[in-house]
Design a protein around this nucleic acid. Structure first.
Lengths: 227, 227
DNA sequence: CGCGCATTTGATCGAAATCAATATTAGTGG
DNA sequence: CCACTAATATTGATTTCGATCAAATGCGCG
């Protein structure tokens, strides 16, 4: 698969590159497949360029003192992995949640040919997304946090239309870790959202009948107190 | 004050710039003072370059639906404001917590003279810091979250030595908003840390007798569950 | 098929939210 | 500078939500 046909291109580094430079870019990157549960990079590894997620998904893990890890972030198609490691070391491990197609983009390639500004822009997008996640996780009601999470995942895995269907690639256990909840609380939060008709579930498949209603649910009264 | 004498230079854009280029940089930026509680930028304003914090501090606010804002981030001397707005709009309002000295760095200046890679590096630093904050806020024990916050602030406002003394520029109310707690819980968390001897307080002045002990306190058992 | 792991459900406990009231501080104008 | 006012900080009592403990069910996989 070449960049020119890749559905991720609008979100990727060479979004506006065409012609000869695009061909050069395509020649400089390297495609790679990562099997389910396999590790892409380990915490502390030296930085060796970026990985664009073309299909599948990953989780970023932060190692705790006692060997316990917590999930920091999920990466979906169109995301670039490695932004947190720029000119540094990988701050987090990255592990595939399912069979995942990646494009390796060497650092030298990303720092040439006018791609720096595009890279900065993408990092800005990432920062804004993290800030949004910060806000959503500030809610102390578990069902609201989960609702915000599912809305976010839905917008990534089923971008079109207000009704969304997708398969959750991660376990409830991993969602719980990401949201700072126990698995039991997470599970009950799923139940609460189902009972309110905001989501439907069938195994790992999730349907959001009305993403507007879901958003309405978690944006109302999400902040603890005004400032 | 020129960059060559600025204590923030190691953390700033022109960390490694010297000679003629440094003089050019100094000529291209513009110093500015912001009075307490005054607004630097408003949410949704177009991006107009970066602001380096030279002294003082700022809070970043996210507007809620109903006019209630929540604190997303605090900025201290050495920080660069605007990283989340690269080539976009300001995602958050920025308001001075105290009288604050800033350097305005036009976007064009930051994108020239080999500063792009330095900018990317700084954004990477910011991303890593946010991930760390994410982890710390995953703790469900309010005193632990506050301990992590105070350790972070202490490392910024009193970088030298294991014993730290500093003045908190923000209200407990703002800390509470940032941590996703009520003001009461935040206040009781202060009390808990005092009782354990991990901090001392006198008005807004905080003393951390042993920042290692404080870190030890909040890093142990901070994650809800392993993954 | 059986084993291990994840999910689901229930009961109890604990921490923080909430409600309420007071004390303190900061900011205002006289 | 002081009095006055509003906002913030502090403390207590009660309630609620999620953590914890425990057990059962379901599922994937060798």
């Amino acid at each position: 698969m070449l960049c020119r046909n890749c559905p991720c291109r609008p979100n990727c580094l060479p979004a506006r590159v065409t012609g000869g430079p695009l061909a050069a870019f395509e020649g400089a990157i390297k495609q790679r497949e990562l099997q389910q549960r396999h590790t892409l990079v380990r915490e502390g590894d030296p930085f060796r360029g970026y990985y664009a997620v073309r299909s599948g998904s990953l989780k970023a893990l932060a190692a705790g003192k006692d060997g316990t890890d917590s999930v920091i972030m999920f990466l979906f198609p169109g995301d670039i992995a490695g932004l947190g490691a720029v000119s540094h070391r990988w701050p987090k491990s990255l592990i595939a949640l399912e069979s995942t197609q990646l494009c390796w983009i060497p650092e030298s390639v990303a720092n040439q040919g006018g791609l720096e500004s595009r890279l900065s822009w993408l990092i800005g997008v990432r920062l804004r997304r993290i800030y949004l996640a910060h806000i959503n996780r500030a809610s102390r009601v578990s069902a609201r946090r989960l609702a915000a999470f599912l809305a976010e995942v839905g917008s990534r895995l089923a971008p079109d239309g207000p009704e969304k269907r997708f398969e959750l690639p991660m376990h409830q256990r991993e969602i719980a870790s990401y949201l700072g909840l126990t698995t039991e609380a997470t599970n009950r939060a799923f139940g609460a959202l189902r009972k309110q008709g905001l989501i439907q579930q069938e195994g790992k498949a999730v349907k959001i009948p009305d993403s507007g209603a879901l958003r309405q649910y978690f944006t109302s009264e999400s902040t603890p107190r005004p400032v």
